[in-house]
Amino acid sequence: MRARRLRAGLKGWGGVATMAVACALVAVFALCVPLSGRGLDDGRSVTQASQTTVEKAEEDCEAPEKQTLSPSSADGDTIQAIKDREGEKRKLIVGVDQNSYRWGYRNPNSGKTAELEGFDIDLVHRIADDILGDPDAVQFKAIPTDQRIPAIQDGRVDMVVRTMTINCDRIEDVAFSAPYFKTGQQVLAPKSSPVKGYDDTLADRKICTAAGSTAYSTLEADQKDGKLPATTDISTTVPNQLDCLVRLQLGEVDAVVTDGALAASQAAQDPTVQLKGDAFTAEYYGVAMKKDADDLVRRVNQILVDYREDTANGWQASYGKWLSATLGKDAKKSEPPAPQYLRNT
């Protein structure tokens, strides 16, 4: 993503990137390139290698949702370690949200001690059923937005299923499955607000986003590139996306920017707010896992293939149960594209 922004800046998109920034980034890439004796003799070799690194990073990141491994039902070391857990610990450990209405939330009216429910939760149960033979063999861990990647890297969870967008920065830190949902960033604001969408009506307005979210990084980049008014205040960030709705209700911010799928659910919770304008990005949710958990990535991708094909109890049924009321009965705009498995290692 950084490489793409650099290239965009040099082409004049927004006019805010400078040659000094370009030189600094090239220098950083140069430090990462192994120096051969030939490179020491000719500085141009290092420069050319650095440029190649930049171009390769940009090329690989054109479609981060395709950078995943082909499906397989085979067990590997990661899956076997999960299966080898004994007694009550023989569960799939999954990082989820407990505050996103219809995605991952505790329903106080469920009659089951407020168990977690939602579209993401259905997928977790499906994965657990396939790997452990029991859809309820899950240990849910509620984690805030900005702790999703650390939780995976630290081994606190086996995976994260939490409306997590696949993007260029994140595929450097974790491995993703193929996409399981398509969405895009949108603006949520009070119905009476003069804000009309992601445009100049956000000038002099305060926006709330979740810390560590794609929404915040998009706003930050767009403001630097001049696509978002310079007077828009994007400094308000919260641990969980639902906290933004609370800030909006209290009048502490003027608008919220988040995934349209989440924003629609928040609008369903509060009839005084609504989506403003169309989605201004195209994004895809994926299941996130450790970088070296190849067998688990392949297994989840196989599960997703089967989940999509299961019309009775799979993706479509879960959409109809949880999301059709807020996103519409026609699920086509939310269906992920046909998966491509372009990651080789």
Rank of each mutant, 00 (worst) to 15 (best):
L188V: 15
L296F: 14
E335F: 05
L245E: 07
M159Q: 09
T232D: 06
G251S: 09
L6R: 02
D169N: 12
A338G: 02
D120H: 02
L262S: 10
K227E: 13
G314A: 03
C168H: 06
A81C: 05
K329A: 10
F280C: 03
D158E: 07
I127H: 02
Q269L: 15
I234E: 07
T236H: 09
D278R: 09
Q266W: 11
L245H: 10
P229V: 06
A27R: 10
R299S: 08
K112G: 02
R44C: 02
I143Y: 05
K227F: 11
Y341V: 07
Q147E: 15
L245P: 01
C23D: 13
D122R: 09
V297R: 04
V297Q: 15
Q147P: 03
V256D: 05
A264S: 14
D278G: 04
Q223I: 05
A24P: 00
K196M: 08
P150G: 14
A261Q: 03
P190E: 13
D134L: 09
T236Q: 11
I127C: 02
K89H: 14
C32R: 13
A282K: 15
T218H: 06
M159C: 15
S73M: 11
K227S: 08
V16R: 13
L250I: 00
K206S: 13
I82G: 07
S235R: 09
K291E: 11
T78N: 01
L228Y: 03
P229Q: 05
Y180M: 05
A255I: 02
V305H: 11
S235V: 02
E309G: 00
K290C: 04
L228P: 07
Y101Q: 07
N167G: 11
R38N: 04
V256Q: 10
R156D: 15
Q153G: 03
G76A: 08
I234K: 04
K276R: 15
D204R: 12
K227Q: 12
N344L: 15
D295Q: 07
R156E: 15
L219Y: 05
S235N: 12
A178P: 00
K332E: 15
A317E: 06
L40K: 05
I207D: 01
C61R: 10
V253T: 12
D130P: 00
F119L: 02
A312S: 12
P339V: 10
P194A: 08
T232G: 09
R126W: 00
L6Y: 01
I171S: 02
D310I: 01
R308C: 00
I127N: 03
E172Q: 13
A221I: 08
A137V: 11
D154R: 14
T113A: 15
L327C: 08
E252G: 06
V287P: 04
A230F: 08
M19R: 15
L6S: 01
H125P: 00
S318C: 04
F280N: 06
D310R: 04
M289R: 01
A255F: 06
F181H: 12
I79G: 02
V305W: 00
L116Q: 04
V161L: 09
F280W: 14
C61W: 03
S265N: 12
K66H: 14
K206W: 04
E58S: 14
Q80L: 12
A288R: 06
